[in-house]
Design a protein around this nucleic acid. Structure first.
Length: 351
DNA sequence: AAAATTTGACCCCG
DNA sequence: CGGGGTCAAATTTT
């Protein structure tokens, strides 16, 4: 490590840190006035970007080489909602540890795993470790031995469609119900936006309901246009057991703040601008102090079951004979190893 | 009708 | 055997 590059590093870090601080301040002020979902998300994105950039920098700085070049994401970027504290060091550390995957022989399904602790501000009970930017599908819930609250299991909504093997489990803390332990398994390889691509048939009918995913799509586009470059994934979803009665639905919202530029060129988006705003309530009172968030630990995940993964194998195995609308997918199914960056998009659904 | 969640059965591993 | 994790049918939500 040359002192020169080291110095550059430091400068870069400083610069980024400053940017991040400013962004935080901006968020703070924004919070006091009229917070909107859109604005908030964008800010989150920005912060997330900073965070990530810093992470990469620091990381490469300490190891001398940047291995984040991994196919898709490679890093469990935790663009956690509000909290605002980067914890870059911790993340940094954890990253490396996760990166190492022992047992190269059984390269299959060894997803990096890490745990975050998300505590929520809310006397009024609200908001959860919920929105981490991805859409999850709950597939199970289990009562855990010594635990007071059940643990719920989620996997990426696009597991099948996009072969995204990210999963997570959420466990509410026993004594401090405002704390949730979220254990992530694997990183997302999905590109959530392709989901909203309207079918060739009738673009007009592709009305965007207030479905979380689609809303994301909008934000995605929004962010793209604003050049807020991040991983570009948003979504909101509230795990059932984390959601609280919502009486705030009646609050009146005037903030029709939405970049007109965006609405302008995507006509069909315009009609739904309001839908975007409504969920803003969920984050109307955001004050960072109360939301804490930190990495805790990780462990190698090693067991996955057959069914789905095997299907994947089968598909990749004899793709040629399949009758699926999907052509030949001839890549190994290895989320961690390669980027299933499908050049095609799937939308063959018929029962 | 389609998509998401619920929930008991089932499976694997210690 | 029992706990944790997943499946999948039933059910609810959208």
């Amino acid at each position: 490590m040359e002192s020169a590059s080291m110095l550059e590093h430091q400068m870069l870090i400083n610069e980024l840190t400053q940017g991040m601080e400013q962004a935080k301040q901006l968020r703070f002020y924004l919070c006091m006035t009229s917070p909107s979902k859109a604005q908030d998300l964008i800010l989150q994105r920005i912060l997330s970007s900073y965070e990530k950039a810093l992470l990469i920098l620091k990381w490469s700085g300490s190891t001398g080489q940047l291995q984040l070049a991994a196919p898709t994401s490679g890093a469990p970027e935790s663009s956690i909602s509000v909290d605002g504290s980067p914890h870059s060091e911790e993340l940094n550390k954890n990253f490396r540890e996760h990166q190492e995957r022992r047992d190269t022989s059984k390269k299959r399904k060894m997803l990096p795993t890490w745990t975050e602790q998300v505590s929520v501000a809310s006397e009024n009970g609200f908001e959860g470790p919920t929105d981490d930017g991805y859409s999850w599908r709950k597939y199970g819930q289990k009562d855990i031995l010594g635990a007071k609250y059940p643990r719920s299991y989620y996997r990426c909504t696009y597991r099948h469609v996009q072969n995204c093997w990210a999963a997570k489990q959420v466990q509410r803390s026993d004594d401090d119900p405002t704390i949730f332990e979220i254990t992530y398994k694997g990183t997302h390889t999905c590109n959530q936006s392709i989901n909203a691509v309207p079918p060739p048939a009738s673009p007009e009918k592709q009305v965007l309901y207030h479905k979380p995913q689609q809303q994301n799509q909008m934000l995605l586009d929004l962010q793209a246009k604003l050049r807020v470059d991040t991983e570009g994934l948003d979504n909101k979803e509230i795990p059932s057991h984390l959601s609280f009665p919502s009486t705030f639905a009646s609050v009146n919202f005037e903030n029709h703040i939405f970049p007109t530029s965006v609405l302008a060129d995507d006509s069909h988006f315009g009609a739904n601008s309001q839908l975007l705003i409504s969920p803003a309530l969920s984050e109307s009172n955001y004050f960072s102090p109360s939301a804490t968030y930190q990495m805790k630990r990780f462990r190698g995940a090693h067991n996955l079951q057959h069914s789905e993964s095997d299907i994947a194998e089968i598909v990749s195995g004899h793709a040629s004979t399949s009758n699926s609308p999907i052509g030949g997918m001839e890549f190994p199914i290895e989320p961690v190893e390669l980027d299933p960056n499908f050049p095609f998009n799937i939308q063959g659904f018929f029962t």
